[in-house]
Design a protein around this nucleic acid. Structure first.
Length: 437
RNA sequence: GUGGGUAUAGCGUAGUUGGUUAACGCGUCAGUUUGUGGCACUGAAGACCGUGGGUUCGAAUCCCACUACCCACCCCA
C-alpha cells in the first residue's frame, strides 16, 4: 500500500486546541469592542466575482496582479477567494439595499482572506482579518472615531507599544496634481532608482515613497510631500482629524510616506505599527475610500474602514504577555469500578452535562488508578469514585482535586443540587451559598 | 519571483578525525497501587536521522541534487 504523506498547503496553518483559546480571546475582544461602538457583524461569501476585486483593489496592484487565488467554476464566471474584506462588504451593502437604511452603516467582520504570497513571519496565504467599515459619513469625526475603535481593540487585547501613523493621500483631484509633481521629481533620477521603482514611476509614483531600497528612500527623502498638494477640502479634513485626535488624547505621528497599497483609498490613511513582531509590523491598516461605493455601482457615498491581521495581533499579544481566556476545565470526573458502576457514571454524567456541568467518565476502560491519573491530567476540579458498595449505600464520595477534601453526597435526585453547591463554593467561596440555605 | 538559514521519535534537543543495537528531557501508555490523582521508581511504545543519488569495507556524520519549513526582500493585515 502506498504511503500517503499529505501535508497542509504552504502558507496555511492548523489551529490546535492548545492555540484555539487565544483565537477565541482575540475574536471575542474584537467582536465586543466593535459592538460597543455600534457596529454589527456582516458575513459575505468566501469567494466573489473576480471583477469585484479588480475593480476595487485595483488592477495595477500586486494583490490583483499576482496574489489572487482565481478559479473558474464549471466554465462559468471567474471567481476569486477574497484577498481582503472591504470589497465584499461594500458589494453586499449595495446589493442588499443597505444604502437606503440609516446612515452611517457600521459593519464589522472576522473572516479568512487568501493571497498567494511567499509565507514568512506574520504573513500567510490563508490569513484572518478583523475589519470594520463605516459607510455614509464624510465627517473627519468618523475617521477619528474609527481610529479610536482600532486603538481600543489593541488596548483591550493587551497589545502595548504600538505606534499610530496617519497621512492623507488626498482626493482624486489633488492627488493628480501631486502625482504629476512626483513624476517630475523622480524622473530626474531614472538612472539611479531601482528597477521596480522605474516601473512605479509610470503606474503609481506614490509607491516609490514606500520603497525600502536605501537608494530610492534616499531620493524619496527630498521628494514633494502630498500634504503640500492637498486641495482645500482635503486639507481641512486632515487638519480637523488631527485636532480631534489631539482632543481625544490619541497619540499619532503624521507620516507622509505611508501609502496604502490598495487603490480605493482616499484622504485619510492610517496604520498601527508594532515593532517587535518581525518584518510584517503593520498590525492594523485602514483609511477612507470615498469613491468605492460609487465605483461598485452604488450611489455616491463616502466610507472608511480598517482591517487588522489576526495572526499579527496574536504574535503581538504574545510579545506583550497578554492574558488569554482558559479553556473550560472538567468540573467532575466520574471514576468507576466495575460494569454496573460504569453505567451509573454514564447516567450521572448525562445528568450533570444536562445541568451545564462539564462531566467526564471512563470511556477507555482504565483501571481506577489510571482513571484518577487521567482526572488529574485533564485538570478536573472534582472527582468521584463509584463502585458496587456506593450504589448499594446510595452515597458517593466527591473529592476536591486541589485540596484532597472529600464530601459525601447522596446518590439520589438531590445529587445535582448538592454538587452544584459544592462547585459554587469551590469557584466563588462559601459566602455565595448563604442565600440558598 | 530573489536571497539567507534549518532539517535526528508527538514536542524540544545531543550526537564531526566516518565505526556495532542512534542518546537525553518532556509528553504518551502501563506497572509498583482491584477504593482514589499529583511525587517517586520500573518498564513499554514511538525515528528506515527530510528525499534521492554518490564516496567508502562502513554514512545521521563527507559530497551533489531535490524537497519542505523558517527568516528576509517585495507586498500587505
Amino acid at each position: 500500500m502506498a504511503e500517503l504523506n499529505i501535508k497542509r498547503p504552504k502558507g496555511t496553518q492548523d489551529i490546535t486546541p492548545k492555540e484555539v483559546n487565544k483565537w477565541q480571546t482575540i475574536e471575542g475582544v474584537c467582536k465586543s469592542a466593535a459592538e460597543d461602538y455600534g457596529f454589527s457583524e456582516i458575513r459575505t461569501p468566501t469567494f466573489e466575482d473576480t471583477k469585484l476585486f479588480v475593480r476595487s483593489v485595483g488592477d495595477a496592484t500586486d494583490v490583483v496582479q499576482k496574489e489572487m487565488y482565481t478559479v473558474t467554476s464549471k466554465g462559468d464566471s471567474e471567481f476569486t477567494l477574497k484577498p481582503e474584506g472591504t470589497a465584499g462588504v461594500i458589494r453586499a451593502v449595495i446589493e442588499n439595499g443597505m444604502l437606503n437604511e440609516a446612515f452611517p452603516q457600521k459593519l464589522f467582520y472576522i473572516t479568512q482572506c487568501f493571497r498567494h504570497e511567499k509565507p514568512q513571519a506574520g504573513r500567510l496565504r490563508e490569513f484572518h482579518q478583523f475589519g470594520c467599515e463605516m459607510i455614509g459619513t464624510k465627517s473627519p469625526v468618523a475617521d477619528a472615531d474609527l481610529i479610536m475603535l482600532a486603538a481600543d481593540v489593541l488596548e483591550r487585547i493587551g497589545i502595548t507599544g504600538t505606534k499610530l501613523n496617519i497621512n492623507s493621500i488626498g482626493c482624486p483631484s489633488c492627488r493628480a496634481e501631486y502625482t504629476k509633481a512626483l513624476r517630475k521629481y523622480f524622473s530626474k533620477y531614472t538612472d539611479t532608482l531601482c528597477e521596480t521603482c522605474i516601473s512605479r514611476l509610470e503606474k503609481n509614483p506614490m509607491r516609490i515613497l514606500d520603497c525600502k531600497s536605501p537608494v530610492c528612500s534616499g531620493i524619496a527623502k527630498d521628494a514633494p510631500v502630498i500634504l503640500d498638494y492637498l486641495c482645500d477640502e482635503c486639507k481641512e479634513h486632515f487638519d480637523k482629524l488631527k485636532s480631534i485626535l489631539d482632543a481625544m488624547g490619541i497619540e499619532y505621528s503624521v507620516n507622509p510616506r505611508i501609502v496604502r497599497g490598495l487603490d480605493y483609498y482616499t484622504k485619510t490613511v492610517f496604520e498601527f505599527i508594532c515593532d517587535n513582531i518581525g518584518a510584517q509590523a503593520t498590525v492594523c491598516g485602514g483609511g477612507r475610500y470615498d469613491g468605492l461605493v460609487q465605483d461598485l455601482g452604488g450611489a455616491d457615498t463616502p466610507a472608511l474602514g480598517f482591517a487588522m491581521g489576526i495572526e499579527r495581533l496574536l504574535i503581538a499579544a504574545k510579545q506583550c504577555n497578554a492574558e488569554f481566556i482558559e479553556h473550560l476545565n472538567c468540573d467532575i470526573y466520574l471514576a468507576s469500578i466495575g460494569e454496573d458502576a460504569l453505567l451509573k457514571t454514564a447516567q450521572l454524567a448525562r445528568d450533570l452535562r444536562g445541568a451545564g456541568f462539564v462531566a467526564e467518565y471512563d470511556i477507555v476502560g482504565r483501571s481506577l488508578n489510571a482513571q484518577m491519573k487521567y482526572a488529574n491530567k485533564i485538570n478536573a476540579k472534582f472527582s468521584a469514585v463509584i463502585g458496587y458498595d456506593d450504589i448499594k449505600k446510595g452515597v458517593v464520595r466527591v473529592k476536591n482535586m486541589e485540596t484532597g477534601e472529600i464530601d459525601n453526597l447522596s446518590l439520589d435526585d438531590s445529587f445535582l443540587d448538592r454538587f452544584s453547591d459544592v462547585l459554587t463554593s469551590y469557584v466563588f467561596g462559601d459566602e455565595f451559598l448563604l442565600d440558598k440555605d
